[in-house]
Nucleic acid binder design. Structure first.
Length: 194
DNA sequence: AGTGAGATGGCCT
DNA sequence: GGCCATCTCACTA
């Protein structure tokens, strides 16, 4: 079942946790659809989060879609060469989002398959693999015809299998760098970093 | 296995 | 001009 827009108009931390185990789909320009199960996310808590692009209510051309209603995509360019895919959460008043950091193939291959075979164990790598660029900014993730959407199946997550740790690459954010807003499935071999 | 640097360009002050 | 929500490769050992 495709996730409805309501799924995203909730507490950002909850959305980040609930996205674990869901399946990300993308149909490219040639009509080829690829997918992967989400196994790692990070929550970005908006205006009050020094690590977030919208910290201090910084509304610019780049962050415009974070100010749209939850359920839109937010894709930005980092280090001049990598795209990162986010899912916008909450309402127009709360410019918050969840970064998709890693996916794994469905079904999960045997343990012997190299972790980086499909190069989806990192936010930049998974966008490169799926062909997601800034052209995919602002898409409606609750609609299949957007070409980018998220579904749930009967995959079950045990809460004891969810790690909650500080986020990656936000050392500049002071205390917020220690906030436990990175979530991942402990039993997945496809996590971006230990 | 751990460290360090380079690639490369948009974004924001 | 300086900084990045990254990744890869080249080194050390």
């Amino acid at each position: 079942m495709i996730l409805a827009q309501d799924f995203y108009i909730r507490n950002t931390k909850k959305v980040a946790i609930d996205l674990l185990g869901k399946i990300l789909y993308h149909t490219n320009a040639d009509g080829v659809t690829t997918s992967g199960r989400i196994v790692e996310t990070e929550a970005y808590m908006g205006i009050k989060d020094p690590a977030c692009h919208t910290f201090g209510d910084r509304r610019t051309a780049r962050t415009e879609f974070m100010y749209q209603r939850g359920g839109h995509s937010y894709v930005y360019l980092i280090y001049g060469m990598y795209s990162c895919l986010n899912v916008v959460t909450q309402t127009e008043k709360e410019p918050e989002a969840v970064l998709i950091r890693a996916t794994e193939p469905v079904p999960r291959p045997s343990e012997k398959v190299p972790k980086n075979l499909l190069h989806t164990n990192g936010p930049g790598k998974l966008c490169r693999h799926l062909g997601i660029t800034r052209e995919h900014n602002g898409l409606k993730l609750w609609k299949k015809n957007s070409g980018l959407w998220i579904e749930e199946d009967d995959y079950k997550i045990k809460s004891s299998n969810i790690a909650k740790v500080p986020r990656i690459g936000v050392d500049y954010a002071g205390d917020a760098a220690q906030w436990p807003l990175r979530f991942y499935l402990k039993d997945s071999p496809w996590i971006s970093r230990k």
